[in-house]
Design a protein around this nucleic acid. Sequence first.
DNA 1: CGATTTTGACCGGCGC
DNA 2: GCGCCGGTCAAAATCG
Length: 370
Amino acid sequence: MNIKMNDHSTVDNEDRSHELEAMQAELGRMDEENKRLRVLLSQVTNNYNTLQAHLLAVMKQRDQSGHEVVQRQFIDLGPTVNTVVVDTDEPSHSSTAGGSQEISTSPSNNIEVGSLGTEEKEKLSPNKNNDQASQEATMRKARVSVRARSEAPMITDGCQWRKYGQKMAKGNPCPRAYYRCTMATGCPVRKQVQRCADDRSILITTYEGTHNHPLPPAAAAMASTTSAAASMLLSGSMSSTDGLMNANFLARTILPSTSSMATISASAPFPTVTLDLTHSSSSNQLQLNRSPATAPSSLPNIFGQPVVHNQSKFTGLQMSPETHRPSTLTDTVSAATAAITADPNFSAALAAAITSILGGSHPTTNATSS
DNA sequence: CGATTTTGACCGGCGC
DNA sequence: GCGCCGGTCAAAATCG
């Protein structure tokens, strides 16, 4: 081989012409790819605009109609962190102010879209063009946190978990427990469970990662939320300065009622979407009983109502306790997450909102601020 | 007896 | 460089 290379002109010229052809062909392919991407981008943009407009319209309707208020809480994270906090609180709470504060106490609250999570840095640093690798990294870091009142040590979410550690967290007298999904070997999903320092009746469960195996319905609800959040993060590479605006917009949309809180934060190490059910409106006293044996399949019972879009799925949370009393915290959370992901319209709107949020640059976005 | 929990050790990141 | 802290590991203990 090398010997031939040493031959001159004619061979060189032939090689070059071949190279040229190859390059041209390559260029052509890139051109096509470029076109395809542009089309895709325009489609996505259109969808986004449409959804946003729709969301706005819905929002206005809700504001005007007062409160059919369904409590939706949702949050998205920035490109790296997703956290969903679900709080099931006692009704007595005086809405917003308290709520946001509570959220702020939790580690995963505010969003600093500007800062990248460690995983992102990992992605960015080496020129690993493998989107997959980076995606996996991001997915793994995506977090969804659920806040709910519960006496039980851990919410039952339909998955099997194995505890692999426990630590005392600074500033919180209650230990933080670390669990790993054991439904399938090699499943990367983990979760942290910790009681709120301010109110020990509040259980904060933070999920991280995406299951690599089939899940039971109840677990799927939760998983789909986390996974969706992670996906959002992945797709949220666009940059926009209205991230904060969108975050607030999202919060208002999702949390029409003052009592419920949705927080989007991209702060700290991981972006987090927090679903807070602890401040649900007056009627939701989700007093979760703890029975650990709670069947995950009870999820559907929680929402006795069909999903009607424009009405958050969280409606179930507002249902009177008697309506479905055997609800556990897990059920509540599952229901909440299921609600979020069940409605195609809501999901789409949420996705759009999240996407826009992902591009945000403001450090702290308290979606719950009224 | 296998699966799960407990718990101290270990590790890496981060701030000073 | 050092210490703090969050997170994970892994051996021992416990459970079903």
